[in-house]
Amino acid sequence: MAFERELDGYTRYLDQIQGRSPNTVRSYRTDVASFLHLMELRGIRDLNETDLSTLRSWLAHETRSHARSTMARKTAAIRSFFAYLADHDLIEADPAQGLKTPKQSEHLPRVLTGNQAERLMDRVDESPVEDGADEDMTGIIQLRDAAMLELLYATGMRVAELCGLDLVDLNPRSRTVKVLGKGRKERVVPYGLPAERALDGWLDGGRPRLIERTGGGGEVHDGQALFLGVRGRRIGQRQVRQVVHDAADRAQVPDIAPHSLRHTAATQMLDGGADLREVQEMLGHSSLRTTQRYTHVSIEQLRQRYRLAFPRA
């Protein structure tokens, strides 16, 4: 493919210089590669031939088959790519400076009410037991799932951050956990007694038993990972999402993903009187504007409660 050297250099720049997450690096590379392929099909062999009208034409082409949120990411990737080229004197001028990000529709993040969240967390130590299932393994999985759910809810961390936790990231004495967030930025987040009890159960009675069961069976377990799958390897995001879906189903609350627990934790902190900056620090948002979405959620919940109390208002 043409421009492969520029694409490889840009990928290394995202990873090694900017410290972007693996998901961002992968997505941006795919977006830029798609753009460069289209340019190649149009006969463009020199990126200096690319101008703003060319970029807008590409955006119009992509908009036909992608949602606004996807187009916003693609636009960000292209702007980042050409900024990289200009900064490294690989092109004479940056044609993407005037490229505007497509306006996204405003929607409030999905959250559980206080009662729903309480009902969910009351059931976290219950996992479905299938007929003929290994009782010991079922007990191990119950301990693990309870610890993961409690920690997600207590800290508002992302599912990728949870999966990346190592044993050394926990500080039981201060009841805090060190989280590696987007851009490889570290933050320290506190957690409460329910999460502490669930983690103690997993670390004392679940994780050692799981390692013992998998260590002699030819499987290579990850001795550093906090949470493990049934084969002893670091747990994956898909597994965690399924755990959350199953827990919501058992508690008979709206079906949610791990990110909804993050939204719920943030909203309840604000409802409890937390400062917006404190919530920003806990969630690891680089921009306060991102955190401000949760104030809108809190206001909307207040409106709903008001309408229930005053139906004629």
Rank of each mutant, 00 (worst) to 15 (best):
P258Y: 14
D255K: 11
N115W: 06
T70N: 12
I211H: 03
F3R: 08
G217Q: 12
A33S: 12
I299K: 03
S80Y: 10
K103C: 06
H245R: 11
S27L: 02
L85T: 02
P172S: 04
R110F: 00
Q242H: 13
G19R: 06
A248G: 11
R187T: 14
P102W: 01
R209Q: 14
A96W: 11
L308A: 07
R277Q: 08
R303S: 08
T295K: 00
Y84P: 02
T63N: 07
D89Q: 09
M148L: 05
M148C: 05
H88T: 05
K182Q: 11
A251W: 07
R45H: 15
A195M: 09
T155N: 06
A274W: 09
A72R: 00
T113N: 04
K185G: 13
P128Y: 14
A251Q: 08
R241P: 00
I91H: 14
R197V: 14
L41P: 02
D51V: 00
L302W: 05
Q142E: 13
R250K: 07
L90A: 05
E92V: 02
G229P: 05
R64A: 12
H61E: 14
H285Q: 08
Q280E: 10
V111H: 03
L151V: 11
L283T: 08
Y294N: 07
R123P: 00
P95R: 08
L59D: 07
V129K: 13
L120T: 11
S57F: 12
V230C: 01
D255V: 02
L261S: 09
G114L: 04
R73W: 11
R262V: 09
H37C: 01
T267H: 15
F81Q: 02
Q301V: 00
D145W: 11
D125H: 06
I235D: 14
L149C: 06
V111P: 02
P258H: 15
A160G: 02
I235S: 07
N48W: 09
A195W: 13
P258T: 14
S53I: 07
L308H: 09
R12T: 10
D31N: 01
A247E: 11
R262A: 10
R64G: 12
